[in-house]
Design a protein around this nucleic acid. Structure first.
Length: 189
DNA sequence: CTTAGGATCGCCT
DNA sequence: GGCGATCCTAAGC
């Protein structure tokens, strides 16, 4: 049994609400990770979402219970980490796009041969490489090993903007970030 | 600073 | 066979 409430967030809420609340939450994978500073929301009603066309072998985790991981391979090369939200069967989630690295910096640098501190986790593919996230973590619950989530400090200022790297629903403002953070994948304007 | 191309997996038409 | 919720490197302005 796993609760839908984790780190003070109710993962049964709509994905754009969860995406906003996740800013400032600390995520660790085997003790390596940092504060979430950038997210994007995706939803079953959303043409840009992997789940828009229904359930497949690749996206089944997004149709499973909330507060679980959905990991997929992007462009055949990178891994991307999502947190499943909404009720089971809905097909919604939040893409974790960037972290402020806090724990396990040595492990991150070892996994990401090139790259200075600013680019260790400044993108969905990069942070998965830094934290060692692969398909092996797909569909696992977020309230147990190797995951750990710690609540955000209250009062974090959040900015929003259009999502990155998609070709449909381009104007939906479902990208969220910590205001003024230098750790995001691209500046907000 | 901006743009272009390659890497390469899995789903879709 | 095409294309993507990406990243890195190289070249052009």
């Amino acid at each position: 049994m796993s609760s839908s409430i984790l780190a003070g967030i109710d993962f049964l809420a709509p994905s754009h609400v969860v995406a906003r609340q996740l800013i400032g939450v600390t995520v660790l994978v085997d003790g390596v990770g940092g504060r979430i500073v950038e997210t994007e929301a995706y939803d079953g009603e959303d043409p840009a979402s992997h789940t828009y066309g229904g359930r497949t072998d690749r996206n089944f985790a997004m149709f499973g219970p909330p507060a679980h991981a959905y990991v997929y391979r992007s462009y055949g090369i990178h891994w991307c980490l999502n947190f499943v939200c909404r009720e089971e069967g809905h097909g919604a989630g939040v893409l974790i796009r960037a972290l402020e690295p806090l724990a396990g910096l040595d492990a991150m640098r070892a996994r990401r041969a090139s790259g200075d501190a600013w680019t260790l986790c400044s993108g969905p593919g990069k942070l998965c490489q830094a934290l060692g996230v692969t398909r092996a973590l797909n569909a696992l619950p977020l309230d147990g090993a190797p995951f750990a989530l710690l609540p955000a400090q209250p009062g974090i200022a959040v900015v929003e903007g259009p999502r990155i790297g998609i070709s449909k629903a381009v104007d939906v403002p479902w990208r969220f970030g910590e205001a003024g953070s230098r750790w995001v994948s691209k500046p907000f304007r």
